[in-house]
Simulated scan of single mutants.
Amino acid sequence: MGMTPEDVAITLPSTSALGDWYANILFTRPEQIVLCVSEKSRLCVLITAKDADTIAQRIEDAIIEILREIGVADSQIQSEKARMAPLAYGATTDAPAMRSVIGSMTEYTKNLDFFLEAEELTLPEIARKMSDMICGPLQYARPTEAAKKLLAEA
């Protein structure tokens, strides 16, 4: 993504209602996909990995798009967008909470493989379907519902 070691070393406390977002590049065909998952809600977004210099903006756009689709009020979306700035990159460490998010990302990766093979859906449609599935770390709530609740409480 064109980051320097100094970019990756930045550590800022998260101020967003949905928490930190974790991302991984998945080597799928015909193109690579970036899977992003919210720490607190487990909401997921998917974008293509092309054009590395626009990935950060496209992730933000995808987050805003899914929040609109699930019925989050524009005022809550704009507040969350403001809380997500500034963007900081960091390496994933081995903390228990991060391991849990990585476990969720592994589940999403398995589901993504199924959706890519079984259906003709766009990446935002797949992300929405996966975010509507129950999630163990959320006591079997849906990430879409968790996101709405967190944003309403913020």
Results as ranks from 00 to 15, higher is better:
1 M>L: 14
2 G>T: 13
3 M>H: 15
5 P>G: 09
5 P>V: 13
6 E>T: 13
6 E>F: 11
6 E>D: 10
8 V>E: 13
11 T>S: 14
13 P>M: 14
14 S>V: 09
15 T>C: 06
16 S>Q: 12
18 L>E: 03
20 D>F: 13
22 Y>V: 07
23 A>W: 08
27 F>I: 00
28 T>S: 08
31 E>V: 04
32 Q>T: 11
36 C>T: 09
36 C>F: 07
37 V>W: 10
37 V>I: 05
38 S>C: 07
42 R>L: 07
44 C>K: 01
45 V>C: 08
46 L>T: 10
46 L>W: 06
46 L>A: 04
46 L>K: 00
51 D>P: 10
51 D>V: 15
51 D>Q: 11
59 I>G: 05
62 A>F: 08
63 I>M: 01
65 E>P: 09
67 L>I: 09
68 R>N: 10
69 E>T: 02
73 A>W: 02
74 D>L: 09
75 S>R: 08
80 E>C: 07
85 A>V: 09
86 P>L: 15
86 P>Y: 06
87 L>M: 04
87 L>G: 12
90 G>Y: 08
91 A>V: 14
94 D>C: 12
94 D>W: 07
94 D>T: 06
94 D>M: 13
95 A>Y: 08
98 M>C: 13
98 M>N: 12
101 V>A: 05
102 I>P: 11
105 M>F: 04
105 M>V: 02
106 T>H: 04
107 E>Y: 10
109 T>R: 09
111 N>S: 13
111 N>D: 12
112 L>Q: 00
113 D>T: 07
113 D>S: 03
115 F>A: 00
115 F>T: 04
116 L>D: 00
117 E>C: 11
117 E>D: 13
121 L>C: 04
122 T>C: 08
122 T>R: 01
122 T>V: 11
123 L>W: 00
126 I>L: 06
127 A>C: 07
129 K>H: 06
130 M>V: 00
131 S>V: 03
132 D>L: 12
144 T>Q: 04
146 A>P: 01
150 L>Y: 01
153 E>P: 02
